[in-house]
Simulated assay, not measured.
Amino acid sequence: MQVLGLDLRWKKFQRNAGLLKRQLTWLFNEHLGKKGISGFINVDYKSKILSVELTMPQDASRDTVRDTRGLSGGERSFSTLCFTLALHGMTEAPFRAMDEFDVFMDAVSRKISLDTLVDFAVAQGSQWVFITPHDISMVKPGDRVKKQQMAAPRG
């Protein structure tokens, strides 16, 4: 009897692991789609390897990028943000902090990222702290959104 119970739990564990991989890719794609990018996250539990594949909309060949080192700094920052938000969507925490999430991003990517982050944070109902040296004037304060801007450092 004990072996049957162990086998059943192992099969359920493997099924849940597969479902979590699919959910992670689905959430990742949901965030990437805001810039017209699509992607896939492959989790190899045996080898303990996580790999990311992206298809960029501006790439006429529609080749899949398998090595994120081939992306520009802004593309890498945006895809990392999307991956992080996908993970955040699968976990719960009363508060979260993100520091310089928009490094290397151009103004358009930064706006999309800030909008995505604020919408996600408000929908989650948890407290978030975003730290960035860039302009955040496009983020509108509200009942659940407070902005605090520090003075520029003196040189």
Rank of each mutant, 00 (worst) to 15 (best):
T84M: 14
G18A: 06
P153L: 15
S113P: 06
A107Y: 11
P57A: 03
T116L: 15
F101R: 10
L19I: 01
N16W: 01
L81W: 05
R154M: 08
S77Q: 02
V65L: 08
N29D: 11
I37Q: 05
L4T: 04
K111A: 13
V118T: 11
P153I: 14
V108E: 15
A107Q: 14
Q58S: 02
Q58E: 06
L24E: 04
D99E: 15
L50E: 04
V103N: 15
S113F: 02
F101N: 11
N42S: 13
E100M: 07
S77N: 00
T80W: 13
P57S: 03
L50D: 01
K12Q: 05
R62E: 10
T68W: 13
L20I: 09
Q149F: 05
G125R: 01
D59M: 07
E92L: 09
S61G: 05
D99S: 12
R76N: 05
L6I: 03
G36M: 08
Q23N: 03
L32W: 06
G18E: 09
S51Y: 02
D106N: 15
L32Q: 06
A123L: 03
K46A: 11
I41G: 00
P94S: 10
E53A: 12
T68N: 09
V108A: 15
V103Q: 15
K46L: 11
G125I: 01
M56W: 00
M150E: 12
E92R: 11
S113N: 03
Q14W: 00
I49L: 08
K147D: 01
P133D: 08
K147H: 02
S79C: 15
T84V: 09
C82V: 01
Q148Y: 14
R66I: 04
V118W: 12
L6P: 01
Q149Y: 04
Q149M: 12
F13D: 02
L87P: 02
D59K: 09
A97Y: 12
K140R: 13
T91W: 02
P94Q: 08
D44E: 00
V122T: 14
D63L: 07
R9L: 11
H134Q: 12
F104W: 14
G74K: 10
G125D: 05
V65H: 06
Q149H: 12
S38W: 04
L20R: 15
D143P: 07
R110E: 14
G5A: 09
L8Y: 08
K11A: 09
L32A: 05
G125E: 03
T68H: 11
I37K: 07
L54K: 02
D63H: 10
L71I: 06
R69A: 06
G39Q: 08
